[in-house]
Design a protein around this nucleic acid. Structure first.
Lengths: 216, 216
DNA sequence: GGATTATTTTGCGAGATGGTACAAAAATCA
DNA sequence: TGATTTTTGTACCATCTCGCAAAATAATCC
């Protein structure tokens, strides 16, 4: 949300008159390109040359703008999280019937997982968990945070649904949330193995049926 | 199960009098070491020097015995699948109450995922799906096979339980199987992020409660 | 215009990477 | 014993890796 105040001219997206030679790239789009590469190939399989070519920045510029490869990976991951969060937060917040809310969440997730020019790329949190998270404590902490953020959002969702009487009294919001997260994770993995969208939709539908229909 | 027949001497683990210089390694244990490395570090992050050191074979020997790095990865993955299958097949086959069967399956999976000297390593199928599967059709096919093998085993499990009256008539074995697989996948991912075992156990317990309690 | 500042560009360098050639070593076969 | 076969060990190659230093470029400030 960009504020559109009528007050004094606030420097928003206008160039803040930087000194020195102007950049030949936009950091935001460059980071997006880097994220694309990391999402498909992973950290180790992506070389600085790959990143340099994709972003249009040569290596020293990359280094100056984002730090070394690991820092760039971390910044890419943070950006992924922001994007993913942005695409879901309103659905989580909205006041919709439980089933519809879940349908929209999973549809939003699938849209992210199936996107990609060369093929589906899955969930970057899952990809990172499966690779760098074991050996790098800082990255692992971010992944853990990503996992629990989703768990919490789902738990909140089910808690509210229960309060509104959409679920049986015996239903446990935390357990249902873990099931919902598990469904997210399974479609993230399967999408990378190119399981056709129809099957993924069926998995989502089956999971939702169980989650909203739990009697105890 | 090694057969202990009384018939004529079958050349089993006895040296078949190979010609030429004898090997300084045992291919089976070397492959095991390679699998260990690949499971923790992934394909791209594991160098031939790493593999050479871990197996005790120098690079030419590695190459001669298993082919190039990719072939070694594929053979390692196949071996992982064999081991995982071996550790579960009897539980799937056994004639146990549904809940107990599920408990044992998940316990067996967790034992695999949490093992490792340097920390939990998760499921190699999931790790491979998250990395090499996108770019390598042959590897992707193996991963797909691994995913569907688990789905089918679970579906069979629930189908039999339903026939025995352990599940409501309205329960759908396929949907329940996908939920069980999803639970497997989520604990595989979380274990790599070092989620403590207690939480993983809780996730498994919650999922089982839902699966065996589904009324429809 | 000249000084200052920020960025780009070129290119380097030390080391790692996957893979291989070749000779020495160690066993069997004749 | 000597020929054959198989594996090992050393050394090497061409390529790629990440990161950085130095110089060139292009803007603003005075």
């Amino acid at each position: 949300m960009v504020q559109k105040s009528k007050g004094p001219p606030i420097a928003a997206p206008e160039p803040p008159k930087r000194r020195g030679r102007p950049r030949a790239y936009e950091p935001d789009v460059a980071l997006g390109k880097a994220l694309d590469l990391f999402r498909t190939q992973g950290f180790a399989a992506t070389s600085l040359d790959d990143l340099s070519e994709a972003t249009g920045m040569n290596r020293p510029s990359l280094y100056g703008a984002f730090g070394d490869k690991r820092e760039l990976y971390i910044k890419s991951y943070q950006r992924y999280r922001e994007q993913a969060r942005a695409s879901m937060v309103e659905i989580f917040r909205a006041d919709l019937p439980l089933r519809e809310r879940l349908e929209r969440i999973f549809a939003s997730a699938l849209a992210i997982y199936l996107s990609g020019e060369t093929g589906p790329r899955g969930c970057f949190t899952v990809v990172t968990a499966a690779s760098e998270a074991v050996g790098d404590p800082e990255i692992r902490a971010m992944v853990l945070d990503g996992l629990s953020e989703l768990d919490k959002a789902f738990a909140n969702c089910f808690r509210r649904a229960k309060e509104k009487g959409e679920l049986a009294d015996s239903a446990d919001p935390v357990v249902l949330a873990q099931l919902a997260s598990a469904t997210i994770h399974t479609i993230a993995i399967r999408s990378r193995a190119r399981v056709p969208r129809k099957e993924l939709d069926a998995i989502v539908k089956g999971a939702i049926d169980v989650m909203v229909g739990v009697k105890g």
